[in-house]
Design a binder for these strands. Structure first.
Lengths: 331, 331
DNA sequence: TTGAAAGCGCTAACAA
DNA sequence: TTGTTAGCGCTTTCAA
């Protein structure tokens, strides 16, 4: 204990914690800090937490770390959290609602001061329950329907709109949207933006939207197969994300269709390496790292009781035009 | 408190913790558990940790979560840790030794029961110091020279050997190794295996090995440029990892050289999507998820005081032959 | 400005 | 098998 080396029992606590009730003598402060440094003293966060009811840890729940969209977000969160002296307890649900429930329960049981949840399905009872609990929670990318939890996400709608305008500008008129399951708010947001843009451009009030089982390559390949079977005559596909776009590419190639000569494809997220495919993928870039830092900052603001905190944050997206989109085949 | 509802003060503790000194009556146990459930009681891990000196949390230090090699490893760690009732405190150093030092210090200060470190440079003083401390530490992929810490890694040497044999089998005789900085043990391991295989196959006792500044696309592109400038007449490149291979591909293409017609390239790690490049990359696949679970299990064994624990674990690798390797140009 | 005393919620000894 | 007592290391009243 630092007291032995320094002088007093719990005055040390005050000396080490600036701006607590009761100012401390300059000389005393110096002595305490000197002793602390000399003994390599670190306050025990467990004991402190036991007393202050704050663990200094934020729980972070992600759907799947091996989905390339996630790591930049987690890095952003992690950096901002550590910078604020908070730790980052990571939990991966593998997109399984049951594991989400288990992990959230464990994180709460571990007395996380707050939660950042990137796994929320629109109807997740686990996440909805969080809104009623007393653990501040911030959602990332995916929102829930039932309750109004703070949310940080990319402005997908703007990106999707830009993508549709880009395709229309190239001359495409039969554009379809191949996307993920409807229980994710991202799907709904992007699909709504797609429909709105199509209608506004006079390309149909009820354009074709096909939903795959997941935001994966495999699901993308299957839903593209479904599109081909319908023989809808689409000349351009707007994919719900890049993985679905990759699946589409696969199915198209297998069917002998060339991209972009026969069909244009645009994705969403600008995952790493999609610029190195043949053809390089046109896609809507999101700023994962910024989403992460914004989410962490929002959590910190909530913990700090900041009433100014913006509860809903939309970060800009940008359409990146590459080789997978081109004018439709003539005739 | 559960006692009020049940009956006794600290008997509850025993009832909820099976296999503690002093058996508990069946009826009592039932009553306590019933009460705990009814009141939604969760033991406070902070208070428990304060008493038992165990936080239930393991610190995980990674070099860069956005490097595609890392996420599968972290997932493996995270799953095994949670399954054992431990949390996973994540810290990302962005490959910066200073941040490594800071993060390790913070994780230790937070009373992590153990550390899993995937950032170790061969000479890292931070990691070497850990060996002398009292926090059990397991290294992942990267080892340090000075001390003999437990290490879990892929059997790179076997993979590199297989890759060299593959290239030699295709008829290549002038094979070069383009890899990362020498301060990482992975570099050294792979380079040594490369030299040994080359010598054994009679392809030179001192084959060309060029070291880039990092395991990145950019460094790979630059080191490939260096190779071209030397005009070494290489017909095959064994890259230190897939990112370096991507950089090579880039430089080669810019120089008007075709892969694999003019130069074959093989990578290492089998990162996601390298099978979708043109040409698809021949590479040594490692099992990231298994590396993670093995590391976590080793940590748990160490924490459990298991004397049987294998301190050095090498996991199998597998050469995946794709389109980026072919026989050398004739003549 | 500082000391003294109490207690956060739990578990480990010891006693019954 | 259970109750009692004590204390983990810190912060926080309250008094000096």
């Amino acid at each position: 204990m630092a007291e032995a080396a320094g002088v007093h029992p719990a005055t040390a606590s005050r000396a080490l914690n600036p701006a607590l009730p009761g100012r401390i003598g300059a000389e005393t402060t110096r002595r305490v800090q000197e002793a602390a440094r000399r003994l390599g003293y670190t306050p025990d966060p467990l004991a402190r937490g036991l007393r202050t009811r704050r663990s200094g840890v934020v729980g972070v729940v992600v759907p799947d770390l091996t989905n390339p969209v996630i790591p930049p977000i987690v890095r952003g969160i992690e950096e901002a959290l550590w910078a604020a002296g908070r730790g980052c307890l990571l939990a991966d649900t593998d997109n399984d609602p049951e594991r989400e429930a288990v992990h959230v329960a464990q994180l709460v049981a571990r007395r996380c001061e707050a939660l950042i949840v990137a796994t929320a399905a629109r109807t997740s009872p686990t996440v909805a329950a969080l809104a009623a609990g007393d653990v501040p929670t911030v959602l990332v990318t995916r929102g829930v329907d039932a309750v109004d939890l703070p949310l940080v996400a990319a402005d997908d709608a703007a990106g999707v709109t830009a993508a549709v305008e880009h395709l229309a500008g190239l001359g495409h008129r039969r554009i379809v949207h191949l996307t993920g399951p409807t229980d994710l708010s991202t799907t709904v947001r992007r699909a709504a933006a797609f429909r709105a843009a199509m209608a506004r451009l006079g390309l149909g009030d009820d354009p074709l939207v096909l939903h795959g089982a997941a935001f994966t390559i495999r699901a993308g390949a299957r839903v593209a197969r479904e599109l081909l079977d319908r023989d809808a005559g689409a000349t351009a596909i707007l994919a719900g994300n890049d993985l679905i776009a990759l699946g589409c590419l696969e199915t198209l190639a297998a069917a002998g269709l060339r991209c972009p000569a026969d069909v244009s494809i645009a994705g969403h997220n600008d995952m790493p390496f999609v610029d190195r495919l043949t053809p390089p993928l046109t896609t809507v870039a999101i700023r994962g790292h910024e989403i992460g830092t914004a989410a962490a900052r929002l959590v910190l603001a909530l913990l700090g009781g900041d009433p100014e905190a913006q509860r809903h944050v939309l970060l800009p997206t940008e359409l990146v035009v590459r080789g997978s989109t081109a004018p439709p085949p003539t005739g």
